[in-house]
Nucleic acid binder design. Structure first.
Lengths: 138, 138
DNA sequence: TGACGTAGTCAAGTAGCTTGACCATATAGT
DNA sequence: ACTATATGGTCAAGCTACTTGACTACGTCA
């Protein structure tokens, strides 16, 4: 219960922080997409796998994020079938805002924990977590 | 990230455990409803507040759970407008299955933590959590 | 070169929510 | 006691983020 409630508080905190930064046309699910697109970008199929949705749904989400200016499509360097999705500058700014909001939510936790406790917390969560699988819950 | 991934793993574990127990017609969101209905039950309005959805949506969910045999409606003892939603025996059996699935997911964690670490983990999550607000993330 | 696999899109359908309107009952003001 | 307003619940319609199914373009391997 505590775990679910804490996760929920984190998501809510990030979402409200991002909205307060002026990005009012995004849902939390978009943040999970941004995580996958940041860095070297990803194809629609890779995004779909990351979010565990169909590639049609991922394609629709990409269209929406492109229309809103957060993402751009580029030809794929090695595969003429594929197209690479990349964050625009606006998308990167939004990602930074999300990072700051997350840090703000977690700050009271970070400052109140001893390093040993922080390590215990990290390893405890690692026991449960499936690395790399960050996506909306349902 | 770890926190979200761990929460996700817990929800997935509960969901698959519940399905494996034969309750294949439920979604994780229903589990959050069961949490509120167990014990003394709740009205549609109370359920809606708990899940942070409209009472129309909560009423629809109640209809569905009644149709599937997990919930029953009873006249409210003190308010003739209201109707009390209660878990049936099947609903309670499902709740027990969910509890067992959650315990199974968390067991490796519980056995690997020292009591002090468990306490630190609990208080860390308490720092973030809003007590009583257990509901789907989005 | 041909058979098959994969990336992506188009179109249509669905599930779970929403908003809006409404009735029945409860509660407060005078 | 009587009216006005608030609250519990449902009905109906609409929306949105997904799904399934069909299809085209390109890649890969015999």
């Amino acid at each position: 219960m505590l775990l679910l409630s804490a996760a929920r508080a984190l998501v809510d905190g990030i979402d409200s922080g991002v909205r307060a930064s002026g990005f009012t046309d995004l849902r939390p699910a978009h943040g999970f997409a941004f995580v996958r697109l940041s860095g070297t970008g990803a194809t629609v199929t890779e995004l779909a796998e990351h979010l565990e949705i169909t590639k049609q749904a991922a394609s629709q989400m990409a269209d929406e994020l492109i229309r809103k200016g957060y993402v751009m499509r580029r030809p794929h360097p090695t595969d003429a079938r594929a197209r690479l999705l990349l964050l625009t500058e606006k998308g990167q700014a939004c990602t930074r805002a999300a990072d700051e909001a997350a840090a703000r939510v977690l700050r009271p936790l970070a400052t109140s924990l001893s390093p040993a406790e922080a390590g215990a917390l990290r390893s405890a969560l690692l026991h449960l977590a499936t690395p790399g699988r960050i996506r909306p819950i349902w």
